[in-house]
Design a protein around this nucleic acid. Structure first.
Length: 618
DNA sequence: TTAGGGTTAG
């Protein structure tokens, strides 16, 4: 008998945990009833918590069982709260919390109750309730429990309340490494990377989750190089990486357009036989697509055994970014056929797909579909896509009336899309209006002034160009909001960044020599640099050195001198490609017989044989 | 018999 107690769980409970179907669970339940096991009230608690823990998808059955039980135990109710967090139905866990606090048999919430209740609040993203729960924690005195504190640190991080997380953490006497990891994650994700890194460096014990938390913070804040460094350090420290680490490594590759690093990660996944789950698969598809290798992205996509809405949306977004709008729409049809439910993000990708190939009517249809058929409320992002759709297609009046009919206040990007289109389609009146609206929303933004100036220049309205220029100088616009242009290129597994006007690269002399050759050959080909001093572009005011100054041109020159003959040049740029660079890159692709792939803020441009895949509309 | 930290798409 004593040995039986040591085994812990009753054999029927063990059987219960191994069940695959509801039918099997019911059979075991019946057997337990026949065996009279439920005469012991603890056994009913064990039944409920076992299902909650091991079979959360069949939680409703254990709730049915619970209904016949007048006095459920605290453990059973706690377990049910946990189960509902597990199956992402956190709302229902409040019901069990209420049963505990309003019970007629003197139940009192314990530290377990609060960890589950805190988890519930994290999932529901409810600030007021979370603060109320924190109040209850203090009232019941569970703020001394390390598990409860640890959960609170995470909950406040989830809500974006870093101050609360820090306060709770710093008040702890000796936080253990799990709580420290939660704090590293909170600090890093909410932008306090210095605090997070200091804590990370000071930690006497770290495990895989700690490393991943720090890397996730860097990835979230766009610090891709730091992700690479940490990944290397991690391997150097002998920590075995897992799927999450590689997902983060891949997201860094995607940010930088570092295809070689990404390919290495792909080989590494296969070598280490990491499980290709939905997160890893989606990250891989996203990486290949955003690095400009759509064929490989789709090859990986179709080879994946597990796909979810993230995977499909990544592939659709990748196709759209690379200009394959029709293929994006086809993939959406395929996804529906597979029974995968689209979400808001899927529709962003879909509308972008319509936009890149000018499918205005289809876009309108999908925009309606998302509301009427899928019950999804369009966000500012979808409205922005619609404005972009009309604008790119040259239907500026429709874009304008669409903005005016929006039920939510149009944001800067919506007006920005219209302003950009006004430049392409040389519409001065609407351009002025869009400019005015952007100024109201954003203040004196450098790029916006440049676009307006360009619209005047395109319509040969030189006096107005001068006015804009004067206004810019008077208001010191360029000093405040000018974003420094940067282009990144990966060569032999090393990532090189070039800033506009920066001449600090160790191979600067060779780069300049190649750029001189580029200029020479461009001239011979009949290209005249766009030296019009009044025509600005998005990144530089000074046009004298247009053909040489912009960062992507420097990156292209570097690519030409350092990559193998015939290897494609892949560049990622933080701003949009200006029209002059676009012309130059087309010519270079032909003259040097090189495929050049440039990812700008908006999309990918595949330059080959003097043509670009965007067909001049971006 | 129930606890806390780390992963993907805009």
């Amino acid at each position: 008998m004593s040995s039986f107690r040591h085994i812990g769980k009753h054999p029927n409970v063990l059987q219960l945990e191994a069940c695959k179907t509801l039918k099997q669970i019911k059979q075991i339940h019946t057997q337990m009833l026949i065996n009279g096991l439920f005469k012991d009230p603890k056994m009913l608690g064990q039944f409920v918590s076992s299902i909650a823990l091991k079979q959360p998808n069949y939680i409703d059955y254990s709730i049915q069982v619970l209904q016949h039980w007048k006095r459920p135990s605290l453990v059973a109710l706690n377990s049910l709260m946990r189960a509902h967090c597990l199956i992402s139905e956190p709302c229902r866990s409040f019901y069990f919390y209420n049963r505990i606090v309003n019970s007629d048999h003197n139940l009192r919430p314990d530290k377990y109750t609060f960890t589950f209740l805190i988890k519930t609040c994290s999932q529901l993203f409810v600030e007021k309730t979370s603060l109320a729960v924190y109040g209850c924690v203090l009232k019941y005195g569970f703020d001394v429990d390390p598990y409860v504190r640890s959960s609170l640190v995470s909950m406040f991080a989830e809500l974006g309340l870093l101050g609360f997380s820090k306060k709770i953490f710093l008040e702890m006497f000796e936080p253990d490494f799990v709580t420290q990891t939660a704090m590293v994650s909170a600090g890093a994700k909410l932008g306090d990377l210095v605090f997070a890194r200091e804590l990370f460096d000071r930690m006497p014990t770290r495990d895989l989750a700690t490393w991943n938390a720090m890397m996730a913070g860097y990835a979230e804040c766009g610090k891709a190089r730091e992700v690479f460094d940490l990944f290397r350090l991690m391997q150097f420290a002998g920590v075995k990486v897992n799927e999450a680490s590689v997902v983060l490594f891949l997201s860094a590759c995607t940010q930088l357009g570092a295809l070689d690093h990404g390919r290495w990660a792909h080989d590494y996944i296969e070598e280490c036989r990491l499980r290709m789950g939905v997160a890893l698969g989606s990250a891989l598809v996203d990486m290949y697509a955003k690095c400009g290798d759509v064929d490989k992205a789709m090859e990986v996509f179709w080879s994946l055994k597990e796909k979810n809405v993230y995977t499909w949306t990544s592939a659709m977004g990748g196709l759209a970014m690379n200009g394959f709008g029709n293929e994006c729409l086809e993939l959406f049809a395929h996804m529906k056929h597979e029974g995968v439910e689209p979400n808001e993000v899927t529709f962003v990708s879909l509308l972008k797909g319509c936009s890149v190939v000018g499918l205005v009517e289809e876009g309108q249809r999908y925009f309606e579909l998302m509301r009427k058929v899928y019950g999804l409320q369009p966000s500012i992002e979808h409205y922005g896509c619609m404005v972009d759709l009309y604008s790119r297609a040259g239907r500026l009046d429709e874009a304008f009336s669409f903005i005016n009919s929006m039920p939510i206040k149009p944001h800067v990007d919506a007006w920005g899309a219209l302003l950009n289109a006004c430049k392409i389609y040389k519409n001065k009146e609407l351009g002025e209006l869009a400019f005015k609206k952007i100024r109201e929303l954003k203040g004196n933004d450098h790029g916006t002034y440049l676009l307006l100036s360009n619209i005047y220049a395109e319509t040969k309205n030189w006096s107005r160009v001068e006015n804009v220029r004067r206004a810019m100088n008077a208001r010191e616009v360029s000093q405040v909001t000018k974003v420094r242009c940067c282009s990144v290129i990966e060569v032999n597994g090393e990532v090189h960044g070039f800033f506009g006007g920066d001449k600090s690269h160790p191979r600067q002399a060779e780069i300049e020599e190649k750029m001189a050759e580029m200029s020479q050959r461009l001239k011979l080909a009949g290209y005249v640099a766009n030296n019009n001093p009044v025509l600005f572009d998005i990144e530089e005011e000074e046009k004298e050195n247009t053909a040489c100054e912009h960062s992507e041109k420097v990156a292209i020159a570097f690519g030409l001198i350092s990559l193998n003959e015939g290897a494609p040049i892949r560049i990622v740029k933080n701003l949009r490609v200006c029209s002059d660079c676009h012309v130059v890159t087309k010519l270079i692709s032909k003259m040097f017989d090189r495929e050049i792939i440039v990812r700008d803020r908006n999309r990918l441009h595949h330059f080959k044989d003097g043509e670009c895949s965007c067909n001049g509309c971006w």
